[in-house]
Amino acid sequence: MDSVFDELYQKYHHDVFQFLFYMVRNKEHAEDLVQEVYIRVFKSYQNFEGKSSEKTWLFSIARNVAIDFFRKQKGWKEKLLEKFDWSTNQVKDEYPIPEEITVQKEEILWIYKCLEFCTMDQRAVIILRYLQDLSIAETAKALGWTESKVKTTQHRSLKVLKKQMELFYEKEGLTSEKVRVER
């Protein structure tokens, strides 16, 4: 096996896979996309100048791969008719929730569902900041943004999550009351 692949796999595979999974919310797609990340890495490995860490560089590639994936999902017609704005677009999905999440406590399941309502950019920031534990500066490098843009997006995404969590509470609360009444 290629030594570069071996090294990257050992160091970063699970983090990159984790990032892609939470971006596209489907394991099979994440499996395909992580392979695409390797292909792009091999293609441009010699251009990596060490200006950012290998890890943030890989996340930036993974994010581009995810964006390209959603572009393809949108289909040719739409792509020709509109200029896709990733900062405002919300992509709704209906994939089954993996077992690793369904076995968690209810709030985790809720927040996973709420992440669906975040834009691609907001989701990327949430994953990098809280699931991958990157700093604001590292997140900015991975996304090719300024630190202030990361902070603003982070703030907005937490606001979206808060709103959705409250809606969930209302919905779930009403359901549980309904159940209680029926009993």
Binding site: M1, F5, D6, Y9, H13, H14, F17, Q18, F21, Y22, K27, A30, E31, V34, P98, E100, I101, Q104, E106, E107, I108, I111, Y112, I126, Y130, L131, D133, L158, L161, K162, M165, E166, Y169, E170, E172, G173
Partner: peptide, 26 residues
Amino acid sequence: KKSEWSDRELEELLRLMPKIQDHRDP
């Protein structure tokens, strides 16, 4: 379960999200 969440609580909850593994052989 609650109706209002602070940023800190949401951040903690997000940090508890499970690791999703790729179980394929490298």
